[in-house]
Design a protein around this nucleic acid. Sequence first.
DNA 1: TACTTACTGCCGTTACGGTT
DNA 2: AACCGTAACGGCAGTAAGTA
Length: 303
Amino acid sequence: MDFSSRQLKAFHLVARHRSFARAAEELLITPSGLSVLIRELERQLGFRLFDRTTRQVTLTAFGGELIAVTEPSLGALDAAMSRIEQVAKGRERWISVGTTPWLAANVLPLAIKQFRKGRPDLHIRLFDGWLDEIQQRVQAGKLDMGVGIFKNSSGMRRSPLFRFALMAVFPDQGAAINSAPTRWSSLSEQRLISLTKDYPHQLIIDKQLAKVGIVCRREQTVKLLETQIALVEAKEGIAVIPSFGMLACRNRKVTMSALIDPVVSLDFYQISNRGSRLSEDAKEFSRFLKTYLANWAGSSSVR
DNA sequence: TACTTACTGCCGTTACGGTT
DNA sequence: AACCGTAACGGCAGTAAGTA
């Protein structure tokens, strides 16, 4: 069996458009040419990919299986080709990094700005999305790396970037940071403003609360860290957040306090595709980010 | 060794026919 | 009329064999 990436691309286009004519248009060939392309692919594979009449084109069961198997590879191939093309064309170099929206809005841009002072030739493309979305893109080769609280997963290379602590956020107590730490046990009976379970750190917080047998009155569950902090400011309850969330508290009348007994840490990881080597550029940015996060945490005492 | 020629395979087109 | 399939054909590039 020996088929070309062009045949594979043609197959995906016909599957997507459910039409030879429209797929051929996108491929910039005539429908007849596309028909031959698909027929030849089917001959090489030894099975039909589409059931077609002059009225409709539908994927066969085998075609459906082939789509599922080849989609990630084709995506990775496209991404790799476009990266190589960019390097070949403009000598400009790109790496792409995915992270969650809050980090993408509050932490990464400044890190990128600082990194680019030393490497103006290397551009960073930032993707903001949820963890599963980032993981899928890394797997498909559309992102060089992802940054966040990722679970270990087969096919993914995961390495720790930084460790954050959990902190409690209270309505204003006269200072941004309360030097006296807060015990988990003292959260008992507090009204808690939580994030949805989309956030892995919320699961860790819930687990810790359950572990030490604390029953909090679950006041509200919200989607954004900013909303969570704003509700604490409005004295609707308290929150438990990762220390990197301190940025979100800067312009709010709230007081943060380190949580102890026990100190619970939150690991931030960098993930990349196990199947492909991380480029030297991506490795360089990764090393920079590690140092940057450590300095950033130190300067804003968020550890 | 360098060049020419013939062959082969790939990719595409046009023209036309069949089906809905 | 719209759409897909088939047949015939052309252009191009690669390869093997022949020749000076």
